[in-house]
Design a protein around this nucleic acid. Structure first.
Length: 646
RNA sequence: GCCGCUUUAGCUCAGGGGUAGAGCAACUGAUUCGUAAUCAGUAGGUCGUAGGUUCAAUUCCUACAAGCGGCACCA
């Protein structure tokens, strides 16, 4: 007797072992048709699996999030079958479901191109239409290895060899095609449906290791139905319009060119945006108890040797020599060693701790060519860097303060939520295990105190200490690390930083490396994408466009612009001899938040007609009132709060 | 760095072995027109760079560079 408990609490009894299919059929034909898989006591399982003991059972239907993952996984199998049917000799490797879709890595001498997609997709549709059932079978380990080796599938054979001995080897077949797979799968290839599309090809290293051969990866997207697929494709199209490289060009914010690969040429408007962000950060840091410094770009290699960078990081450093001097200098890739040098000037007291030393530090790193990406990943960038010299006991309270500051700043820039990753000790590291235990422990405690929910990111810490990474997303869902906080017991030791404690003895301070924006370049790139170029008034590089309707209003337009500029606003004056419709269009396309229109009427009445970006409705105000209003609205959020609090 | 793709006017893109074309932008002129494109005209290109094949290359081939999509990297 097997008792099955359903989510509504009802129970059904069966004489013996029973499959999910049988249970579903016993409940009703609707469910029998809709059930794609099931969860038995919380474990996702094939519908055809036998249930031998009393169990809680939940059926998975197409509406469930889990079903979407299964559709994608199954679709990867369908892709693999199609590819092997069309391109004999292609070896299969792995093909998981991922966010929005799936991929499959193939080993083939000639890589795939998007031109192959129509044929592959057509074959996939045939396979789906055939609706072959997914059949699970267990195999003996050695037999499974022999099976794949006989077929020339050496990657699959390698996978099985590396599975733990205890692992059951399961295969799934769909018609004549069979693959090593842990499962589970839906009932048959027909359940995949037709709402899928192959998206792109890419090279990918076997098992993610650059020493391994490169495989040919095909990415696809798959959804429950055509409507969802269309919505996703539409979303991607929209996201493309938010691309910071596109907007940077259209809005004349910056450009990049071959003569300075990986460096940004900031144009006047982009630099204005940059400076707005910088001034804001400078105020926030000052209020938060930081002291700003500036340290050299070029520093003797001796310092980098002492800090450990020469050993661990040299290949990423730009070096410089001078003809008649026998010295090697390096462009700083980080600011920390220089900050320690400032800390070491004079004898420090425990009374000075925590000492928060900030720098908008311009750094150069030789990033691999393939890593460069617009202004998000560059070779020359400016960090909103700071180092907090403190005692071990101060790690937790300083982390809490930092997280609060970061959250408030992200909110001011329009980011309501962000992800936090906790990266612990990497394989290649400095410092003893005991030191790492202490550092990781302190940081974890601090996270608890600050109420930070983090995902663990094992082995990804800096060589000198564990770190928190604050991650923001770009328009198409790529993650970028912006903020960071890193605990460092190593560098103070290496560079011999010390302070005199209450006990009159000398002690090592701990260093917290921390950044909020990360780099201005990356953060502004994400900011551009987040706002799609439609910045709030305080950030907009051009805040008001004053547009005249007739040339009679030109002198007044200039007067209006002058008054707005005097109030601190960034203004362009448009007195060109073109129609007001065209001016509205031009400035709207430039995402200017406010257009102040002046014609004869406004010139006579000494008013302006304000039009907000994308809003047809206008508001006509006396000039002085408009200046006051916009001046107030354009205030940075921290200053606005200050005024509001009064 | 690795795999693939791309590179033609300021921008977006078409073209193709016989030395280039559109729209928008720019410039000139007309127009003074009230909230997302006024009309007409003019000018604008070593077809990424360097080699090679050819009577002839921007087009075909090779190398390099940069960009794009991934992978690896991101101290």
């Amino acid at each position: 007797m097997v008792a099955i408990t359903l989510p509504d609490g009802s129970e059904r009894r069966f004489d013996g072992a029973v499959t999910g299919t049988t249970v579903a059929t016993s409940i009703g034909p609707g469910l029998a048709k809709a059930a794609l898989a099931m969860k038995v006591n919380g474990v996702l399982t094939d519908l055809s699996a036998e249930i031998t003991d009393d169990s809680r059972l939940v059926f998975i239907t197409r509406r469930d999030e889990t079903a979407l993952e299964m559709i994608r996984h199954d679709c990867a199998h369908v892709l693999a079958e199609a590819v092997q049917a069309l391109y004999p000799g292609t070896q299969v490797t792995i093909g998981p479901s991922i966010e929005n879709g799936f991929y499959y890595d193939f080993a083939r001498n000639e890589p795939f191109t998007p031109a192959d997609f129509p044929a592959i997709e057509a074959k996939m549709r045939e396979i789906v239409a055939a609706n072959a059932p997914f059949l699970r079978e267990m195999r003996d380990r050695d037999e499974a290895i022999a099976f794949f080796e006989a077929k020339g599938e050496r990657f699959k054979a390698e996978l099985i060899r590396d599975l733990p001995q205890s692992e059951t080897i399961t295969f799934y077949s769909q018609g004549a095609w069979i693959d090593l797979c842990r499962g589970p799968h839906m009932r048959g290839t027909g359940d995949v449906g037709t709402a899928f599309k192959l998206m792109k090809v890419a090279g990918a290293y076997w098992r993610g290791d650059h020493r391994n051969p490169m495989l040919s990866r095909i990415y696809g997207t798959a959804w429950r139905d055509q409507k969802e697929l269309d919505a996703h494709l539409k979303m991607l199209e929209e996201a493309e319009k938010r691309d910071h490289r596109r907007i940077g060009k259209d809005m004349h914010l910056f450009h990049m060119q071959e003569e300075a690969t990986g460096s940004v040429f900031w144009h006047p408007k982009g630099w204005k945006l940059y400076r707005t962000a910088e001034s804001y950060m400078r105020r926030r840091l000052e209020v938060a108890g930081y002291e700003e410094v500036k340290t050299p770009q070029l520093v003797d290699r001796a310092l980098w040797e002492a800090s450990g960078h020469w050993d661990k990081y040299r290949e990423n450093m730009f070096q410089a020599q001078v003809d008649n001097e026998d010295k090697t200098l390096a462009l700083k890739p980080m600011n920390c060693p220089c900050h320690v040098l400032i800390f070491r000037q004079g004898l420090r007291s425990y009374r000075e701790l925590p000492l928060r030393m900030a720098e908008f530090g311009a750094c150069h790193r030789y990033e691999p060519s393939g890593a460069l990406h617009g202004i998000m990943r560059v070779r020359a960038f400016t960090q909103d860097d700071a180092h907090i010299f403190c005692t071990e006991a101060q790690i937790a309270p300083e982390t809490v303060r930092f997280v609060e500051l970061l959250s408030s700043i992200y909110q001011d820039f329009g980011f309501e939520s962000f992800r936090v990753k906790f990266s612990d000790r990497p394989e290649s590291r400095a410092g003893t295990n005991e030191t790492w235990d202490r550092a990781e422990g302190a940081l974890k405690e601090a996270c608890a105190a600050a109420g930070v929910d983090f995902e663990l990111n094992p082995g990804e810490g800096a060589f000198y200490g564990p770190k928190l990474e604050f991650v923001l997303r770009d328009a198409i869902g790529r993650d970028w690390q912006c903020g960071t906080l890193q605990v460092d017991f190593v560098l103070p030791e290496r560079l011999d930083a010390e302070y005199v404690g209450e006990d009159s003895q000398r002690h090592r301070p701990v260093m917290l490396h921390r950044a909020i924006l990360g780099s201005f370049e990356r953060f502004l790139g994400i900011l551009i994408e987040n706002y799609a170029g439609r910045f709030p008034l305080w950030l907009a590089p051009v805040q008001v466009a004053v547009a005249s309707i007739v040339s009679d209003a030109e002198p007044y337009a200039i007067e209006v612009a002058t008054a707005l500029k005097a109030a601190g606003l960034a203004v362009v004056t448009d007195t060109a001899n073109i129609k007001i419709n065209a001016k509205i269009r031009d400035h709207s396309l430039q995402h200017v938040p406010v257009i102040a229109v002046v014609g004869r009427k406004e010139a006579e009445d000494r008013t302006v007609a304000l039009r907000r970006l994308g809003v047809e409705q206008q508001e006509t105000l006396p000039l002085d009132e408009a200046v006051r209003l916009l001046g107030r609205e354009a205030m940075a959020p921290d200053l606005a709060r200050h005024i509001a609090a009064k």
